[in-house]
Computed example of a mutant assay.
Amino acid sequence: MQDFIFSTADSIIEEKDINEILLENKITLAIACRLKAEQYMISKIPNLNRAKLGNNQTRELSKKYNHSFNSSPNLSTIDKVNLMTPENIHINAFMYEPLVDMSVYHLITLYKETSELK
């Protein structure tokens, strides 16, 4: 499933005439950013017990990552993910409003940043 989301996000950022208003593009990019950031943090946090992560997984991972790597230059990207992408993305979520107001180009830039996390 993640591969499908990433390939869809990749195809969005490669579009020449991207629809700046299309909410589906923004939702896909927001989800892909969170997943990329989570994958990165999970790979870096020592002795992580994923079973103990709660409902706000990205936020909890970022706290643990910050505790272990508080001088990492990647913290700014992780902070952007927490700030720019809603935690609860589903069909009836009121959290769509920030995505509606946000430029798709901001999400494209963030997706590229999260894709480059190593």
Rank of each mutant, 00 (worst) to 15 (best):
P73N: 12
N56I: 07
N70A: 06
S72L: 11
L110C: 06
Y96S: 00
N88C: 03
K80M: 08
E87V: 02
G54H: 01
K64Q: 14
Y111A: 03
E60T: 02
I78Y: 05
I108P: 07
L61I: 05
T77M: 02
F94I: 12
N70M: 12
K63P: 06
E113S: 06
V100E: 08
T114A: 05
K64E: 12
M84Y: 03
M102K: 12
L75E: 06
T58Y: 04
E60P: 01
P98H: 08
I108E: 00
K112C: 03
L83G: 04
Y96E: 06
Y105V: 10
M95G: 07
T114S: 07
N56F: 06
K63W: 00
P98G: 09
K80Y: 00
R59N: 03
V104T: 14
N70S: 15
A93C: 15
K64M: 15
S68E: 14
M102I: 14
P98D: 08
T77G: 02
M95T: 14
R59F: 01
P86N: 00
G54P: 05
K64F: 09
I89W: 08
T109R: 10
E87L: 04
L110A: 01
G54R: 07
A93K: 12
Y65K: 09
L53G: 05
N74M: 08
N55Y: 03
S62G: 02
H106V: 10
Q57G: 04
Y65Q: 09
F94G: 10
T109Y: 01
R59E: 04
T114F: 00
G54Y: 06
E60D: 06
T58S: 02
V100R: 13
L99D: 06
P86C: 01
L61K: 04
K112V: 01
I78G: 01
V104W: 04
K80G: 01
S71G: 13
T114W: 03
S71A: 11
S76Y: 03
M102F: 00
T109L: 04
I78W: 08
Y96T: 05
N66P: 00
N74Y: 11
S68V: 14
Y111D: 05
D101K: 15
A93P: 01
N74W: 08
P98F: 00
F94Q: 09
L53D: 04
K80E: 11
L99Y: 05
H67L: 13
P86Q: 02
R59K: 11
M102L: 15
Q57Y: 02
M102A: 11
E97P: 01
T77F: 01
I91L: 15
E60K: 07
N55L: 03
N82G: 09
L83R: 11
E60G: 02
S76V: 14
Y65C: 05
S62A: 13
S76G: 04
H106E: 12
T109Q: 10
Y105L: 12
S103C: 05
A93I: 07
T77R: 08
T58A: 02
H90P: 05
Y105E: 12
N56A: 05
N74Q: 11
M95W: 09
E87I: 03
D79E: 15
V100I: 13
H106R: 11
H90W: 14
L61G: 00
T58H: 05
P86I: 07
S62M: 10
F69A: 07
L75P: 10
N56S: 03
N88F: 10
N74E: 14
K63I: 08
K112E: 00
S76E: 13
L110W: 06
S68K: 13
I89E: 02
L61H: 04
